[in-house]
């Protein structure tokens, strides 16, 4: 049961957090929103964009604004799983040697997996358990990660030479995928001004507490969504499957696999978080629309023809959105 006070407190905390982040990050509202939504829904975000657009800064700003521990992992081809999750090392205490677990960078609250597609699949898979179960298993021991926890992975859409595209299983574990676009002229001017004038960019002071974030997470799950909207989400997800009778023609032609049930769950949770970020106490169709593409864009797999013709998955999702109507 959510009280009026809890609802008010969560709304105020999120409002403060957004304000703090926007003091540092110029533009990129969708990326900021995606990061916050994933943070509120115990999810993870895949950020895609060319280097130099402020992805790392965004993650650092988020961690700083919530006053949580931040770690950054630069993925390279020779990175090993132990480099991420940690390993047992021999230590000597009072003349006695013993194995002691040395936690890797994955043990933080906000983890930036930079250029995640440059590591081998083996190393990429080391993140799977942490991202989904929020635990890390080393040898016979399993360690629970501290909440709130979020992994923000970045990948570069260019320079694909020597990269290892994320397998579908791992992609599906990212709640949202956000594309970091190049800033506009005004935004770029602002970025230049902030970084070259005065003392440069200062990370914000914590605007919210850990408890605020955990409360907001509970409130998000308590946000009601009408059954008809829940059905609507299900119809949207089903329409991404080429064998669905509601699928648009282009989906039937170019899609090999549609979104998984995890996609529907992510869509509804994201819509709830979006509603709360907007100060609403219930899910609206507009909330679903705002998170529809970022929740499903990385869950559709093109077939050979779609790949060969360079079909854009967001355009396919636009077709799905146009075809599936809220009121039948």
């Amino acid at each position: 049961m959510i009280t009026e006070a809890q609802l008010e407190r969560a709304s105020n905390a999120l409002s403060s957090l957004q304000t703090a982040i926007r003091q540092v990050i110029v533009g990129q509202p969708d990326v900021i929103r995606a990061a916050l939504i994933a943070f509120l829904c115990r999810g993870n975000v895949l950020l895609e964009g060319v280097p130099g657009l402020g992805k790392t800064l965004l993650v650092r700003t988020l961690a700083s604004a919530v006053g949580l521990r931040y770690s950054r992992i630069q993925f390279t081809p020779d990175l090993m799983p132990a480099d991420i999750i940690g390993t047992d090392i021999i230590t000597e205490t009072d003349g006695r040697r013993q194995f002691e677990f040395s936690a890797g960078p994955v043990f933080a609250n906000v983890v930036l997996a930079d250029e995640v597609n440059r590591a081998t699949p083996k190393t990429q898979s080391a993140l799977l358990e942490a991202m989904e179960e929020r635990t890390v298993s080393v040898g016979k021991s399993t360690y629970t990660l501290d909440e709130p926890y979020i992994v923000l992975a970045t990948q570069n859409p260019i320079e694909m030479e020597g990269t290892y595209p994320l397998p579908e299983a791992q992609l599906d574990r990212f709640m949202l995928k956000a594309t970091v676009h190049f800033p506009s002229l005004d935004e770029l001017s602002q970025i230049v001004e902030r970084t070259t004038e005065g003392i440069g960019i200062q990370l914000p002071e914590p605007a919210v507490t850990r408890d605020d974030i955990l409360l907001a997470r509970d409130v998000v799950r308590g946000i009601p969504i009408a059954d008809s909207l829940r059905t609507y989400v299900s119809r949207l997800v089903l329409a991404t499957h080429p064998e669905s009778k509601n699928a648009p023609d282009r989906v039937r032609q170019f899609v090999e696999y549609g979104a998984s049930p995890r996609g529907a769950i992510a869509l509804i949770l994201a819509a709830k978080a979006h509603a709360l970020l907007e100060g609403e106490a219930h899910v609206r169709p507009a909330d679903i629309e705002n998170v529809f593409r970022s929740a499903l864009v990385h869950r559709l797999i093109l077939n050979f023809r779609g790949e060969a013709e360079g079909i854009s998955i967001p355009s396919l999702l636009d077709d799905v959105w146009s075809k599936v109507q809220l009121v039948q």
Binding site: I225, A226, S228, L229, H282, V283, R284, P285, A286
Partner: peptide
């Protein structure tokens, strides 16, 4: 904004 549906 689906208020009637949600309220129902």
């Amino acid at each position: 904004d689906a208020r009637l549906t949600t309220l129902h």
